[in-house]
Amino acid sequence: MTIADVERPNPTPAPRILESKPRFSDRVFRAIVGLGGFSSLIILGLIAGYLFFRGFSILRREGLSFITSYEWVSSINTDGTLGSDPSTYGVGAMLIGTLVTAAIALVIGVPVSVFAALYLTFFAPQRIKRALITVVDLMAAFPSILFGLWGLYVLMEPGMYVAELLNKYLGWIPLFAVPVPVFLRSPFIAGLVLAVMIIPIVTAISREIFSQTPLDRIQAAYALGATKWAMIKNVAFPYSYSGVVGGAMLGLGRAMGETVAVFTVLNILYQANFQILLGAGGNLASHIILKFGEASEDEIKALMASGFVLFLMTLAVNMIANFIVSKTGRRGR
C-alpha cells in the first residue's frame, strides 16, 4: 500500500466563521450586571442631589454664611408659626467642632495605630499576629452606639483625670485652658472615643501598607547591619509613608461623620469651642440629630443643607484618602 492510495481529505475546508458578537443571553447578563454595577454611582448621585435639592432654599438664602456663620437661630413660636425675627442658620461653630474632635482623634489614634501596625508587621509571632488581626477586624465591626455607651460610662472618669492633669500642668496653653472647671463631657473625651473608633481602620490600612515593603530591601538593610528600628526608619517608613497618610485620612473621614458616639459623650452646645477640655461643643452630625426631633419645616431644610455639607466633606476626604492609599498599596480599602 502506498501513500497515494490513502484517500486525502478535502485540502481546504471551508473556513469557520468566527463571531465576536455576544449571544443574546450574554447581552442580557451584561446589561443586568452593568445596571447593578452602576447602582453605587446612581445612589451617590441621588444622595447628593436630594440633599442639595431639599436644602437649596436655605443654601441660597444664607449663601456663604451658612458655612462661616456661628448662629443657628430658629425663630418658631410655641404654636408652630414663624416668629417675627428671621431665622438664621450657620453651621460654622459645628464645623469647627467637627474638625476639633476629629483632630484630637487623629493626634491620639494615629500614633497608636501606626505603632500597633509596626508590631503586627515586624515584631509579632505568626500566631499572635493572626489573633490580633481578628481582634482589629472585630473592633471595626463594633456598633458606634457601643463606643458611645462605653465612652460615657467607662472612659469618662479616666478621661477627666487626664484632662485635669493636662489643665494643671499645661493650662497656660490656650488650648488647654478652662474658664470654669467643668471637665465632664468635653471635646477632649469625645476625641478620645473617636480615637478608639478610628484605630481599627488606620491599623488595618497601615499594616497592609507596611506588609508590602519589599522583602529584598528589608533583608538588604539587615545585611548591612541595621537594627530593626533602623530598618523600619530607613526602609519601611519611606516606602509606606504616603499610604499611612491615606489611612489616617480615612480615619479622619470616619471621625468627622460620627454621630451617635459623639452625641452620647459630648455635651452638645452650639458654640465654637477651642478649649478642648471644657465640657461643651459638638460636631455637625450630632447637631443634626439634636435638632431633628423638634425641628420646624424650615429648620429641617437647614438640616438637609448641613447633611449636604457633611456629605461633601466626608466624600472629599475619603476620595483623597482612597486615591493616596491605592497609589501606594495594591488596592485601597
Binding site: S40, I43, L44, I47, L51, S144, L250, G253, R254, M256, G257, E258, T259, A285, I288, I289, G307, L310, F311, T314, L315, V317, N318, M319, A321, N322, S326, G332, R333
Partner: peptide, 10 residues
C-alpha cells in the same frame, strides 16, 4: 470605596 466611608447619618 468612597461610598463605604459616607457617614451613616447621611
Amino acid at each position: 470605596q468612597a461610598m463605604s466611608g459616607i457617614p451613616s447619618i447621611v
